[in-house]
């Protein structure tokens, strides 16, 4: 328990004494929010996961894509 408390204090004091670091953390958190809460959710769904439910369906779709030449 004492070790956990020391680790917590280590990080707590470290973050507390930051100057430039505070600005950087704001940027990091903002960046992660934009990436995961906006870009990933609204712009980057996993195509195969959203269009097919099983691995077999995904495999068949990819095979069709790979052998498109046969359509000619």
């Amino acid at each position: 328990m004492a070790i956990l408390q020391r680790i917590f204090q280590f990080y707590y004091q470290g973050f507390k004494n930051m100057t430039t670091g505070k600005t950087l953390w704001v940027i990091i958190l903002l960046k992660l929010f934009v990436m995961f809460a906006i870009l990933k959710v609204f712009f980057f769904p996993k195509y195969l996961d959203t269009h097919f439910s099983t691995n077999e369906e995904k495999a068949n779709h990819v095979v069709n894509e790979l052998i498109q030449n046969n359509k000619q």
């Binding site: 990436m35 990933k40 769904p45 990819v62």
Partner: peptide, 9 residues
């Protein structure tokens, strides 16, 4: 992200 969306094959 791009792999999963734009380069799924």
């Amino acid at each position: 992200f791009e792999f999963g969306t734009n380069w799924s094959n």
